[in-house]
C-alpha cells in the first residue's frame, strides 16, 4: 500500500525527449515505474526510450489509459502542460520545474480549483513509492520499502530524512516533495490526510520550512483530526538570525518575523512530535513501534 502512486499506476511523461527528462525517465523505468507514454508536441508518432510519443496529453491518455503525468517541461511551459492535464482529467500531475513565475502559479491554482487533477510541485523532487514507482528526480539508491510516510517542503532535507529512515532499518510507504515556492500544488494537509487513510503507513515524517504559513495551517487541521497517525516534524533554521532572509519567498507581514521556534511551538501544540535534529527522527520512530 502507498499513497497516490504504486506499481500499477500508469504514468505518462510530458516533455519526455529533453535531456534531463530522458535521464530521469530511464532511471524511473529501470526502477519499475509503469511509464506508458510520452507527450511532446509535434513529435507524435515517434518512439523514445521505447515508449510511444503523442502530440497531446489527451491522445496519450486515450490510447494508454494513463492516470498520472510527470512533467519535465520548462517553467514557462508549465501552465500549458497543466491545462492539458486538467482537461484530460488526470488524477495526478507532478512538476519538477524550477523558477515558475508567481502569476503563472496563480493561474495554475485557479485551473486546479474544482478540477480532478492534484498537482505535486513545482520545484520538487516529485513522488516516490519505494520499489514501485518514481515520478520525478529522487536519487534512486536511498529509498527502502516500509511504513513511514514522508512529506517535505525541502528537497535535500527529504533525502536526508529518507536516508536516516532507511539506514535505521525502517522504510518509506511513499515520499512526497511539496516544493517550497511561494505557491505550491498539494499541501501538507492533503498529503497527511492521505497517509492517515493508508493502511501501510504507520507514521508520518513532515519536514517544514521557515517561510510561509503551510506548517501552521496543517497543525490547526491536524489538531482537529480524530483518527490520525503520529507525525514527527522537523523544521531547519534555528541558527538563522532573527529577521534574516535566507532566500525563501517570504510572507509579507511575517517575512522573517516568525521564528522557527514559533513554528515548532505551533506544531507541538497540535500534538505533533517535534524534533530538533534530523537524526532524532529515527530515534522517535523506533520508540513508536
Amino acid at each position: 500500500m502507498s499513497v497516490f502512486v504504486n506499481k500499477d499506476t500508469k504514468v505518462v511523461c510530458q516533455g519526455i525527449t529533453g535531456n534531463q527528462a530522458s535521464f530521469h525517465v530511464k532511471n524511473s523505468l529501470d526502477y519499475g515505474t509503469k511509464i506508458v507514454a510520452g507527450v511532446v508536441p509535434e513529435k507524435g508518432g515517434s518512439l523514445h526510450l521505447g515508449l510511444p510519443v503523442f502530440n497531446t496529453l489527451r491522445e496519450a491518455v486515450e490510447q494508454t489509459g494513463a492516470e498520472a503525468t510527470v512533467m519535465y517541461v520548462p517553467a514557462a511551459q508549465l501552465k500549458y502542460a497543466i491545462r492539458e492535464a486538467v482537461e484530460a482529467e488526470l488524477g495526478l500531475a507532478v512538476s519538477i520545474a524550477a523558477d515558475v513565475p508567481l502569476s503563472d502559479m496563480l493561474e495554475i491554482k485557479a485551473m486546479l480549483r474544482g478540477s480532478k487533477t492534484k498537482l505535486i510541485g513545482p520545484n520538487t523532487p516529485g513522488i516516490i513509492t519505494p520499489e514501485e514507482a518514481r515520478l520525478g528526480i529522487f536519487p534512486i539508491d536511498i529509498h527502502k520499502k516500509g511504513h513511514i510516510g514522508v512529506v517535505s517542503r525541502s528537497s535535500t532535507l527529504t533525502y536526508e530524512a529518507v536516508l536516516a529512515i532507511s539506514r535505521a532499518g525502517l522504510g518509506q510507504s511513499t515520499v512526497i516533495g511539496l516544493g517550497d515556492d511561494m505557491l505550491i500544488g498539494m499541501d501538507f494537509i492533503e498529503v497527511i490526510d492521505a497517509f492517515n487513510h493508508d493502511r501501510s503507513t504507520k507514521a508520518v515524517v513532515m519536514i517544514g520550512q521557515l517561510s510561509g504559513p503551510f506548517e501552521e495551517v496543517a497543525a490547526d487541521w491536524y489538531k482537529q483530526q480524530i483518527n490520525k497517525k503520529p507525525v514527527i516534524a522537523f523544521i531547519a533554521g534555528n541558527a538563522v538570525p532573527f529577521g534574516h532572509n535566507m532566500g525563501y519567498a517570504g510572507d509579507v507581514l511575517t517575512n522573517g518575523y516568525v521564528s522557527v521556534q514559533d513554528k515548532k511551538d505551533a506544531l507541538a501544540a497540535a500534538g505533533m512530535i517535534v524534533v530538533d535534529n534530523l537524526n532524532e527522527i529515527t530515534r522517535v520512530l523506533s520508540e513508536l513501534k
Binding site: S154, L157, E160, V240, N277
Partner: peptide
C-alpha cells in the same frame, strides 16, 4: 557548499550546536 536551502539551514543549525 550545499545543493539546497534546506541543507544550508540544517548545516547552520548543526554548526551552531
Amino acid at each position: 557548499i550545499v545543493n539546497g536551502d534546506g541543507l544550508a539551514l540544517s548545516a547552520m543549525d548543526l554548526l551552531k550546536e
